[in-house]
């Protein structure tokens, strides 16, 4: 089933989803424990490790060996059900992120600056979609300038920094998985 047992890239097929789900819960755990810093001055800086992991996976072309849309869909549904209780925002948002990154990859390389470019554009599309989704669901009454100033910009800043920090370990980890 999905090449889980034996065959080429067996390690990748196990480790990728395990990391994905670990990071999924890490997002909430970090936000719960560091909310004092992350929600300072009425801003909401959201950790988005799941999104970063997906972005890195696509940049290193792991989606060629993985059912990435399936894992993204499952992770998105868990994200929505466990954190929000409203299904739709991140389920579709993560799929859009993966799709955007796949389209962008053709034009960019695997260097740090390219990864940052993909991160910025990917996270922008994810955040814009979730804002739109919250408006459709009637959950958000934030105005666009409020959203850009207090959520979008700090979140992007934090996650770009996280992407830089994660670049070296992720590169080693993913290239190792790709070649084994």
């Amino acid at each position: 089933m999905f090449g889980f047992f034996g065959g080429y890239h067996t390690k990748l097929k196990w480790i990728f989803p395990i990391m994905l789900f670990l990071l999924l819960f890490l997002d909430g755990a970090i936000y719960a424990n560091m909310a004092g810093i992350l929600t300072k001055n009425s801003s909401h800086t959201l950790p988005m490790f799941v999104a970063l992991w997906l972005i890195y996976a696509i940049t290193y072309e792991l989606d060629e060996y993985l059912p990435i849309y399936l894992w993204t869909l499952v992770a998105g549904i868990i994200y929505d059900v466990f954190y929000f209780g409203v299904i739709g925002g991140y389920t579709v948002g993560f799929l859009i992120l993966v799709w955007v990154c796949q389209k962008l990859r053709i034009y960019l390389s695997e260097s740090l600056l390219s990864v940052l470019m993909i991160t910025i554009l990917g996270l922008t599309s994810l955040q814009l979609f979730t804002y739109l989704a919250a408006n459709i669901a009637g959950l958000s009454i934030m105005t666009v300038p409020m959203f850009v100033l207090h959520t979008f910009t700090p979140t992007l800043a934090l996650n770009v920094v996280m992407a830089v920090i994660m670049y070296v370990p992720c590169r080693y980890c993913l290239l190792f998985l790709k070649n084994n």
């Binding site: 755990a29 936000y31 719960a32 950790p47 954190y83 919250a134 959203f147």
Partner: peptide
Amino acid sequence: TVISRTPSSWLSQLV
């Protein structure tokens, strides 16, 4: 005990 928090700006929920 709080085990998680919704990483979102419009729905501040604790789990």
